[in-house]
Simulated scan of single mutants.
Amino acid sequence: MSEQLATALAYALSSVLWVAFCTSTSGCVPHPEVSGKVTITRDGEELVLDTGGNGTRAVDASGEVAGGCIIRNRSELSVTVQEKGAAFSFFDLVDQAGLPHVSAEIGGKLYQGACVIVVQEQQRDPYEADVAAGPCDIIRNFDGMGARLETAVFHVSDCSGAD
């Protein structure tokens, strides 16, 4: 594995673990609002992960879809959405230290790729933003099987800003 891929994987996993820990303990991210929709194509199949209402409904504690977000110092971003039991069950986009990348779990396998992420922060709140990524290619770790992130579009607010 290349050093760049190993570094990207380490950043992605640390962000995922941080978001998972904080959202599960309800201590770090009290009530982030994450709404959006991700579309990935693989072998001619379109896979969609949607927070509800065609990406307009924010995730909540009672729903099947969970989500979290972090916006730190206006320079680091992580948005995570997870739907238990779905074939396309997890998506994370991260921009840390100028290394934008996405991760997706499809059929229990992790796909990753370096994708441009566009963030439009809301002027009234530094922890609210519109976030988009795609199109870009992603690959399955260890065997190189390809997929394509067609679009990922989110609106996030009340994101954690802790250092």
Rank of each mutant, 00 (worst) to 15 (best):
M1F: 14
T7W: 14
F21I: 01
A12Y: 13
D92Y: 02
Q112M: 15
I138N: 07
S15L: 04
G67S: 08
I70W: 01
K109A: 14
Q96P: 07
H31E: 05
A8M: 01
Y127S: 05
D163P: 08
A147Q: 08
C136P: 00
T51F: 00
S2Y: 15
A8N: 06
R74M: 14
G146P: 07
A114M: 00
D163A: 08
M145Q: 03
L77R: 04
T51G: 07
T151L: 07
C69R: 12
S78K: 06
T80L: 02
G134P: 14
G85M: 09
D60A: 05
L110E: 02
G36A: 08
A114D: 10
D50F: 10
V131S: 11
G44R: 10
A86I: 11
V19K: 10
A114R: 01
G36Y: 06
V102R: 12
E128I: 00
R42G: 15
F88R: 10
Q120V: 09
A58R: 05
H155I: 09
A86P: 01
D130G: 01
C22K: 02
R140C: 13
V48C: 11
A86L: 04
R74P: 12
A162M: 00
G108H: 11
S24Q: 01
W18F: 15
V102Q: 02
E3L: 06
V102Y: 00
F21R: 03
L77G: 05
V131W: 13
G27D: 07
S2R: 14
G68K: 03
T56M: 15
E3I: 11
L93V: 09
Q122F: 00
S14I: 10
P135G: 08
S14A: 04
A8V: 00
L9G: 03
V65N: 05
S2V: 14
S157W: 06
V81F: 07
G27K: 09
C28H: 07
R74I: 12
V59H: 08
T80E: 02
L17V: 10
A61R: 12
R72K: 13
E150G: 03
W18Q: 11
T39F: 14
Q120L: 07
T7I: 15
A86E: 10
D130K: 13
G144V: 10
R42K: 15
V102W: 04
G107S: 09
F154I: 13
P126E: 14
T56N: 15
L13S: 11
P30W: 10
F90Q: 05
G134S: 08
L47H: 09
I138W: 08
Q112V: 12
E64D: 04
T7L: 13
E45F: 14
G44P: 06
E45G: 15
C115N: 10
L149E: 03
G52R: 10
F88D: 01
I40A: 11
G67H: 08
I106V: 11
T7C: 14
A152P: 04
S14M: 06
S62Y: 06
G53K: 01
I138S: 06
